[in-house]
Amino acid sequence: MMLRQSLTLAAALVATSAFAQANTQAPAQTDCLVRISTAPAAWMIRSYDPFSGETPQATFNITFINDGGGECRFTPIFDLSQPPFGLSKGAGKEIGYQLVNLTDSQNVTPWAGRSMITPSTPQLVLAPNESKTLLYKLVVNQEGAPGAGTFTQDVTIEAQGQGFTSFGGARLVLGLEVLPSARIGLAGAYSMNKGQAVVDLGELRTGLVQTPLQLRVNSTGSYDLQVVSANSGKLRLGSTDWTVPYTISIGGHAINLSGPGLLAGPTGTGYRSDSAPMPIQFVIGDANDRRAGTYSDVISISVTAR
């Protein structure tokens, strides 16, 4: 089980002539003037579950339009509005990412503050009133997210000509939304039968059962455990009324099985993987004067990230 939260970011589109908005003169008819349209204005990878095993990635379009009267020759580059490089929540560890121009298979990631241009980097050529749309892929380092939340970075996409001349640009937000998420698993003495973990408590005797069993939890932050007993804390002989009471503890914390038992995990933010698995212990109540047979109960343990 998981909780979901959503934060929508928006980026304003800026269209300028070489970012020289202070120049109020209209461009000459022979000038190159590039207008850049991003779709959408915020490149967000939404609702990513870090335990899904999938790489967070998405594709987006940028359209370049020549609003000038002359031919435009330029290279689209990405420039960081404010270093350091990486997606973040404003503090803490940054998440690495890559930007790839899929149209010409160029890596345009602004690792050093801006996209790297080499002599072999192709230029985009636009005739007056012509437009072209390029396809880009944003790929985020799935191992780098420090926890749940929305991580962003502001960049500028710029049409750069020779001699670092800028023919136009637009501001853009790159981002990753990491969902609160958690996973649980068992370790120790159990077997699987039809998708269920089966724990053999041996011969029922009053007292602590010496069964090595542990619960492992991985989460993006804080979490809660819920434990539900189908028989409300009783081992039952088939469909009869013969029962044996028992109690359970997880990580040394006793769970009330008369109803849904709740156990709060550690507080705080950031990924957590319990370095010491939490032992699960069973204590059998009065087992005297019971009919012979196999007594059982079904326990459901679920985790909710918060």
Rank of each mutant, 00 (worst) to 15 (best):
G149F: 07
R73K: 14
P56H: 02
P122Y: 08
T133E: 07
Q5R: 15
Q210V: 12
G195Q: 05
W43Y: 05
T267E: 02
Q196K: 15
N193S: 06
Q210S: 04
G149Q: 11
L138W: 13
T8S: 05
N107W: 00
G188C: 11
V139C: 06
R73C: 02
T152R: 15
A148Q: 09
T8D: 01
T211D: 09
A182H: 10
N218K: 11
G175Q: 04
G251N: 09
Q210W: 03
P40E: 03
Q82C: 04
E203L: 11
G285S: 14
K234C: 00
S302N: 04
F78A: 14
R272N: 08
G261K: 12
H253T: 09
A145W: 02
L134A: 10
G207C: 03
T55G: 02
S47C: 05
D154K: 08
Y246C: 04
S181W: 06
S229T: 09
L33P: 00
S181D: 10
G285P: 07
I299F: 08
T38F: 01
P50R: 15
T24H: 10
D49Q: 03
F74L: 14
V155Y: 02
L172Q: 07
K93H: 06
N129C: 08
D31K: 08
G86P: 01
L33Q: 12
V173C: 06
Q57F: 02
V108Q: 02
T38V: 12
G202L: 01
T118V: 05
K234A: 05
I280G: 00
S219N: 04
N61W: 08
T30G: 02
T16D: 04
T38S: 14
N101F: 07
R291P: 00
I301H: 01
I36L: 03
P110V: 03
P266V: 10
Y223E: 03
P277G: 05
M278D: 00
P119W: 11
D79H: 15
K234S: 03
Q82V: 05
L87D: 09
G168R: 13
G161A: 01
T75L: 06
I62V: 15
Q196R: 15
L138Y: 06
V178F: 01
F282M: 07
L186E: 02
A145I: 00
L87R: 15
C72I: 04
P27Q: 14
H253L: 07
R171W: 03
A42I: 11
D79Y: 14
S222I: 01
P128E: 11
R114V: 04
G293M: 07
L126S: 07
Q25C: 04
G233N: 12
I62C: 14
R291H: 04
Q25N: 12
M2F: 05
A112T: 09
I250H: 11
A22T: 13
L87P: 09
E94Y: 11
M278S: 07
G147H: 10
E130F: 00
T38M: 07
A22W: 13
F19H: 12
A159F: 01
L257P: 01
